[in-house]
């Protein structure tokens, strides 16, 4: 049994409630317990930091301070939302780097009787704890109904892998941890080169054309590579790709209808939970037709075409990118 402090963030209480619910179900199968940080507040999402640095960091600092205070034995703080995760991680990092920022933020926290010592809370993303702390073997053991035949494009977004702060857990450009996770639950992972590109974030509110362009790129790339479903790890990414598909189709004259599910929903399905329990059907682009592709038996691996006589060999894949980067 592993216990974590849990920072759900605003989205998981509203539009991403299925993320929260599916996570709680999956957590049980994986022997994970989450203790929600009491009295947490919004992390300020992506905007506040560009408007006024001190209150922005104070907002995040308050959550870190609360987590530190309520955390009796050095548990990691886990955030399932990538924006929350980055804000927490970033604030911790810059508070440690800048004594001046630290002083001002702590001055603000003191007004509420709080104090935060940078570095005292270890912030992790949900994907990180499932792939690294729990590990693929344990996940594999929890699988009851493998997602054979389901073609998944694992979408990481840009916030959990970049910038590379200390301890960033996957490759900054071409992460692979969720690929392995999805394969572990029996799904087929399609090549998805755009996997770490930005979904536009709140650009949908500021400059829709920019956002639509980014969303279009992602949808097209996943569909071009034959994905049935895109797996998301962030409420913002899920919302943008799901809710703006119509707008993209109008704007670009396309006809995308690819469902966007949280990776926890997919884990839950593989662990044997029913579609309703996993909140399937609450997404805007209905996932049920795609999920109907799930097979009882693994598909026969497609035989790779014999390379033509002239074809030049490819370099072997670098499996160890992550461990290499860690050795730097």
């Amino acid at each position: 049994m592993q216990t974590y402090s849990y920072y759900p963030g605003c989205a998981l209480e509203r539009n991403a409630a299925v993320y929260h619910d599916s996570l709680m179900a999956v957590a049980e199968s994986l022997d994970l317990t989450f203790t929600e940080v009491a009295d947490w507040n919004c992390c300020g999402a992506t905007e506040y930091i560009t408007i006024d640095l001190i209150p922005a960091y104070a907002l995040v600092g308050r959550n870190l301070a609360l987590a530190a205070e309520q955390n009796c034995n050095g548990r990691s703080l886990v955030a399932p939302c990538s924006a929350c995760f980055l804000n927490l991680k970033k604030a911790d990092h810059y508070l440690a780097q800048s004594p001046e920022l630290n002083r001002k933020v702590n001055q603000a926290l003191a007004a509420g009787g709080l104090h935060y010592e940078p570095g005292s809370v270890h912030v992790k993303h949900l994907l990180e704890i499932i792939t690294e702390d729990v590990g693929f073997e344990k996940v594999a053991r929890a699988v009851k109904r493998p997602l054979f035949g389901l073609k998944i494009a694992p979408y990481y977004g840009c916030l959990i892998v970049r910038p590379v702060f200390d301890g960033t857990f996957d490759d900054a450009e071409q992460p692979t941890s969720m690929d392995t996770l999805m394969r572990t639950i029996g799904a087929e992972v399609v090549d998805f080169p755009a996997k770490a590109q930005c979904c536009g974030g709140h650009m949908t509110q500021i400059s829709e054309a920019v956002a639509l362009h980014l969303i279009h790129q992602l949808l097209k790339n996943a569909v071009d590579h034959g994905a049935d479903v895109i797996a998301a790890i962030c409420p913002m990414c899920q919302l943008n790709l799901d809710a703006y598909q119509d707008a993209v189709n109008k704007h670009y004259g396309t006809n995308f209808h690819i469902p966007i599910l949280y990776f926890t929903q997919l884990l839950g399905l593989a662990f044997g939970f029913g579609e309703a329990t996993m909140g399937i059907g609450q997404e805007l682009v209905d996932a049920r037709p795609a999920l109907a592709n799930i097979q009882v038996k693994p598909l026969k691996p497609v035989k790779r075409k014999r390379p033509s006589k002239t074809e030049l060999p490819m370099p072997p894949k670098l499996q160890e990118v992550r461990s290499c980067l860690k050795n730097e």
């Binding site: 490819m314 894949k317 990118v321």
Partner: peptide
Amino acid sequence: FDARRETQYGYGRLANVFT
């Protein structure tokens, strides 16, 4: 230098990237 380590340049993943 093992160019696969610069993952953003796609060596080892994109066929027509050469060292």
